[in-house]
Nucleic acid binder design. Structure first.
Lengths: 184, 184, 184, 184
DNA sequence: TATGAATGAGGATTCATTCAT
DNA sequence: AATGAATGAATCCTCATTCAT
């Protein structure tokens, strides 16, 4: 799985070969296929495996917590994940950019349901005047896009920033951004 | 070129086949290769062609304009490009996620130089107190990531939003976000 | 024709492309094919054109001349041809090494007839005691192989001799060889 | 290797196809490429493999033996090789006629060194008056060209001689030739 | 559980030749 | 007489998958 993640996240599904994965896994190709039925099977196993972890932070957004605190914590957790699990982020990014042929269902099912649920929470907070008026969906997109950017577009970020570690600054920036956007 | 853009932006370089491109272009495969030396040549021609257009909006950021106005205009122009040229956006996204093997130089050269230049402009505005203290680099990343998100992760956005057009809301959200972040 | 000779003699029939020939001829590919029906046509035209010149020296061997003188002159003329027309020599060599698919008939017809005729002349000289006993066929092969060697295997000859011109020495050597073989 | 030799020696590198080699080897094309990385790899493996065997007879020329005897033995061994390994001979011939792009280095290195060494031996014999004055390099070329002629130009030899086996006569002829050239 | 060997289905590219003008 | 454009038929090579052991 780790080998598959390493390869697939870098080259995408079509760009990766079983030879690469087997090599990275320290297995022979046939032996790799002894554990997984097919190339596709490795890939979908990876996606499925990761999905839960990937959605967990949003799941954890607590309706009973402090709104700004909750949203900021969620965003910072996503940023941490970009920092610590960039390969996972890129694996999803690759999949989704190419039309998400394998997880379209999940997006329209579980993901949509989860976002809808949390959007209601955020809308409620807005209604209670606890945060400024904000479209909850676009707020979520903002958090997703910005946090994942540091993982998915790492080469570009590094090209622009040089040796400076982006995550320290990103954390401050993200907090400020959310404060400006949310704090009434 | 248009056929190449359509295919490469959807499947990435490795995931695309000349058959697909030729089919989309209404040409036979050898005839396609009569105009372009190789698959790689089509792809790099596309990238080179697009790069200028892609950087132009940031280039246009005017040091002598109104700071919030300038930055917001820039962001909205990028958002328009995501709306009107999503394939171009995805082409770059694909390339960069996979490590930008073909445009790494450009990123570290022209792109970095341009961003550095505009970062100075933004920092000056901050120094003059015309906008709130903000890290110019992370501000740029925010604009890039958020605007491109609507093109690059279109399937996901659509899966979550259903039939609602995302761009109308995105424009308002983006403006509000920048206002909260920048207006002193 | 000259362009065809240049290319085909270097790369053989299969190894040469019409592009190369057209380029060498300063013509466009379709225009080349306006003059010659096909790649094959260029090649066979070349072979046919050259064959006569190639056999002429042996034809000229005079039954009424001085045996040693005649044979030596023949050999030296062949050597001159290797020196002055190495491409022609290599064209035939390529063709024959690969089984002479296009001139097999000529070899078994005209060439064999010519050699048979001249073999009789040489045998007659042997019978008259004017030269030492020698198998006329193998004598002819000796002259062919040795003279053509300097053209066909030019790279090897040059690799071994360096900058020294091989032909001067070859002429002396060939004369001596024939003297030793023929002079009673 | 045997299949490769059969095909490449007949059609040259460019004229041979992997299909032919695979067919001759009783393998599928991909399976052939499982054993050899590429077409080129098969070809160069063949050349490398053969080179040593090909130079060995000259290596064996003994400075302490009887000059005429040594040279004649060498020539007859080369002739035997032409008889028994004509495909090997044609493989080299094809390569060298086309400019030896793959073994140029070897020709200018090992081959030249070996010939230089043996040329000195022959020159010494000449200096001692044990054989007639003869250019050692051209003597070597004579032996190479004549012996290989029977393999490389086999179609032509056969076309001229018909059913007669050439090698029996060639041996006598070659011995006589060397006697006339060398015996003082 | 493990792997050397094998292969069918592509996939990029080349090339002789043809077509339209 | 000339050529830009087009293409079918190779041709080399890759790769996911299977087979035999």
């Amino acid at each position: 799985m780790d080998a598959g993640l390493a390869i697939f996240s870098q080259f995408g599904f079509r760009g990766s070969t079983l030879d690469q994965v087997a090599e990275a896994a320290g297995l022979s190709k046939p032996n790799l296929l002894y554990y997984f039925r097919s190339k596709e099977a490795i890939y979908t196993a990876l996606l499925a495996n990761l999905l839960e972890d990937w959605l967990e932070p949003l799941e954890a957004l607590d309706p009973d917590g402090d709104p700004v605190q909750e949203i900021t914590s969620y965003a910072l957790r996503k940023l941490d994940m970009s920092q610590n699990f960039p390969r996972e982020s890129r694996l999803f990014a690759n999949e989704i950019i190419q039309g998400a042929p394998r997880i379209h269902e999940v997006l329209r099912g579980e993901l949509k349901d989860l976002v809808d649920k949390k959007a209601k929470v955020i809308s409620a907070w807005v209604g209670q005047g606890r945060i400024k008026p904000v479209d909850p969906y676009h707020l979520v997109f903002t958090i997703w896009s910005l946090t994942q950017h540091y993982a998915d577009f790492e080469v570009q970020v590094t090209a622009v920033l040089g040796d400076i570690d982006p995550f320290e600054g990103a954390r401050h920036h993200l907090s400020a951004l959310l404060r400006g956007l949310l704090v009434p």
